[in-house]
């Protein structure tokens, strides 16, 4: 009985390898599938950020659905962290940064002249790449933000509630006066999440929150995000595509243009983006064939 074998898919019978695809840096409108039929917490309109003369990211139209997890992914330098920092005006702290376009929180342009950036940051909290608890007690780490915001309720209740929501209470309830720095990396990151929650934000931004954590601590944070989204809207920047696939509801893929200008390539439901992306650039990146 004869058995035929066939050449590999990317190779013709003559052994000629197909040429890689070449793309320009335009965003394909069909690849932008904003969440339908649900309230939006934040939205950008033609958002662009310059650092001095350098255009870091341009033309971003992104809608962040309320009580959902939106992941921003893309290669280094694509502008995803820059966009994230626009969501609570953290870029104001960089002297050369110039933001154009609109960033709306509940329909209000947070870059409008009469908007207080401190109030924006109270509503839009942030958790950073490396856990950065204050060199204070666990209790004070959580209470601090509320106290400087003039919180007048029972502080003990607030601290317990924030630690409960951050899934840390059971581990620290007997050592609230211990230093926040005495905790493990994963616990410190959850403490930072509790600290963000304590000022009652609407939105929590997470900039690679698990990159310094081991896989088990990473999964705990991802589980926690699923719990938190019933009360908060979460936007996460991650280099870990499996994390974006596991943990988010919507994913935005950014790429880099020929002038190192970041731009949004595709945005849509995570399940669709990871099984059937519209844009070939997304496919190439998420399957590891980028660059």
């Amino acid at each position: 009985m004869t058995v035929q074998t066939r050449p590999p898919r990317l190779q013709s019978a003559e052994g000629e390898v197909q040429q890689p695809r070449v793309f320009d840096s335009t965003t394909n409108p069909e690849a932008l599938r904003a969440p339908q039929g649900m309230p939006m917490a934040m939205a950008t309109r033609d958002l662009a950020v310059h650092y001095a003369a350098f255009l870091a990211v341009r033309g971003v139209d992104l809608a962040v659905a309320r009580n959902k997890i939106t992941a921003l992914i893309g290669p280094s330098g694509c502008g995803k962290s820059t966009v994230l920092r626009c969501f609570n005006r953290m870029n104001d702290l960089i002297p050369t940064a110039q933001v154009s376009g609109k960033v709306e929180l509940d329909g209000v342009d947070i870059y409008a002249p009469d908007i207080d950036p401190v109030e924006v940051r109270r509503k839009v909290g942030m958790v950073f790449q490396k856990p950065n608890p204050f060199p204070k007690t666990i209790y004070e780490n959580v209470a601090w933000g509320a106290r400087i915001n003039g919180y007048r309720g029972r502080m003990d209740d607030l601290v317990e509630d924030a630690l409960q929501r951050a899934a840390l209470w059971d581990e620290v309830k007997d050592k609230l006066q211990a230093s926040g720095l005495s905790l493990s990396g994963g616990q410190q990151q959850r403490l930072c999440i509790a600290r963000a929650i304590a000022v009652r934000p609407e939105i929590i931004l997470m900039d690679e929150p698990c990159s310094a954590l081991d896989p088990i601590a990473t999964l705990r944070i991802e589980e926690l995000m699923q719990t938190l989204k019933s009360d908060y809207t979460i936007v996460i920047v991650t280099h870990n595509m499996q994390q974006a696939a596991r943990a988010s509801d919507y994913t935005a893929f950014f790429s880099v243009g020929s002038q190192r200008d970041g731009y949004l390539v595709e945005f849509g439901p995570t399940a669709e983006l990871f099984t059937n992306p519209v844009d070939p650039r997304t496919e190439d990146y998420i399957t590891g064939r980028f660059g």
């Binding site: 035929q4 590999p8 990317l10 399957t287 660059g291």
Partner: peptide
Amino acid sequence: MARALYDRELHRLENEVQTLGNM
């Protein structure tokens, strides 16, 4: 190609399916 080994395995498996189909 960033994932050469992976791609090679993917194509090898495709060939295996084709071989099975021809059998």
